[in-house]
C-alpha cells in the first residue's frame, strides 16, 4: 500500500488562500490504513479548517472505497454534485493518485472545474507493519529480485546500486545516508550466504532497464474485477480469516 503523511496545515492554508468554501474528501483505501484519510482524519481536518474560518463540507469515503478507483469514489462525487458545484476547492486526503483521479473525473465527466488540492504527501509503496513499515518496491516495471536474493537494491539501497555495497557502509552495517537504515548490500550478502548463493554476489548485474519505466505508464485491464455485493462478501470472509486465523509474529 501507499504510505502517506498529512501535509502541514500552513501549506494547505496557502493553497486555500482566497478560497472560502471547501470540500474535504477522504479515502477508504491506503489513506484509511495510514490514518491520513479515514473518517476521523476527515473530521479533524474539517474542524481545523473551520477554526481557520473556512466553510467546510465533508465527503468521507467508507472503508474499501478508494479515491483512486473512480468506479467507487465516483459514486460519492455524483451523490454530492450540488455541493461540489458550489464550492471553491476540494481537498483530497489520499495519495496523489486519488487527487488526480478525482480532479480529472470532476473536470471531464462532471463538468465541474475546481481546484483539487492534495492534503497528504505520499511517501512510498510500503510493506510490513502494523507499526514499522518499510518502502520495499518502487514499481519499476522490471523486477530485479531474482538477482538479489529477494531484496530490491533499487529501493533498499540508498543509492539504488545494482552492484553494491558502496564504500560508505557505516561501522554497524548501516547506510551512509541514514544511520537508521540497514545497508541493503550487506543484507543481500548475508541472505545469499544463507541460501548458499554467494557466487551470485560477485557476478556483475547489468544496469537496470529504465526503459520499462516510461512515465506515465498506462495499464489495460481485460477483465476488471466486478465491484458488487459479492466482492463485499469476499472482503468480509477475508477479514473473518484474519480475525480467527493463526496470528503472525509482529514487531512490538
Amino acid at each position: 500500500m501507499i504510505a502517506q503523511e498529512k501535509k502541514p496545515m500552513e501549506e494547505i492554508l496557502g493553497y486555500l488562500e482566497g478560497k472560502q468554501k471547501v470540500v474535504v474528501m477522504g479515502c477508504g483505501g491506503c489513506a484509511t490504513f495510514y490514518r491520513t484519510g479515514d473518517t476521523k482524519a476527515v473530521n479533524e481536518l474539517a474542524e481545523n479548517l473551520t477554526k481557520e474560518g473556512k466553510d467546510v463540507f465533508k465527503i468521507p469515503l467508507p472503508f474499501s472505497i478508494q479515491a483512486c478507483e473512480i468506479e467507487k469514489s465516483g459514486v460519492f462525487l455524483e451523490k454530492n454534485r450540488k455541493e461540489l458545484e458550489n464550492r471553491d476547492a476540494v481537498l483530497v486526503m489520499s495519495c496523489g493518485g486519488g487527487v488526480q483521479v478525482v480532479a480529472e473525473y470532476m473536470d471531464e465527466k462532471m463538468g465541474i472545474a475546481k481546484s483539487v488540492i492534495p492534503a497528504n504527501d505520499a511517501i512510498g509503496l510500503v510493506g510490513g507493519g502494523p507499526t514499522h513499515l518499510k518502502e520495499t518496491c518502487q514499481s519499476c516495471g522490471m523486477c530485479e529480485l531474482g538477482k538479489t536474493a529477494g531484496i530490491c537494491p533499487l529501493t533498499a539501497c540508498g543509492k539504488g546500486l545494482m552492484n553494491g555495497p558502496c564504500g560508505g557502509v557505516r561501522v554497524d552495517n548501516k547506510c551512509e545516508i541514514d544511520e537508521n537504515k540497514d545497508c541493503a548490500w550487506v543484507k543481500i550478502y548475508e541472505r545469499m550466504e544463507k541460501l548458499d548463493e554467494l557466487d551470485k554476489f560477485t557476478s556483475i548485474r547489468d544496469p537496470h532497464e529504465w526503459s520499462k519505466t516510461k512515465r506515465p505508464r498506462l495499464f489495460e485491464m481485460e477483465e476488471p474485477v466486478k465491484i458488487n455485493a459479492s466482492a463485499g462478501i469476499g472482503a468480509i470472509k477475508g477479514m473473518m480469516a484474519v480475525t480467527f486465523g493463526p496470528k503472525p509474529k509482529l514487531d512490538e
Partner: peptide, 20 residues
Amino acid sequence: APGAAHLKAEVGKVKRKINA
C-alpha cells in the same frame, strides 16, 4: 575500502570490479 564494516561483502564487490 579496506576498512569497510563488512569486509567480506566489500571484497566480493572488489572481485566483481576485477571481473568487470
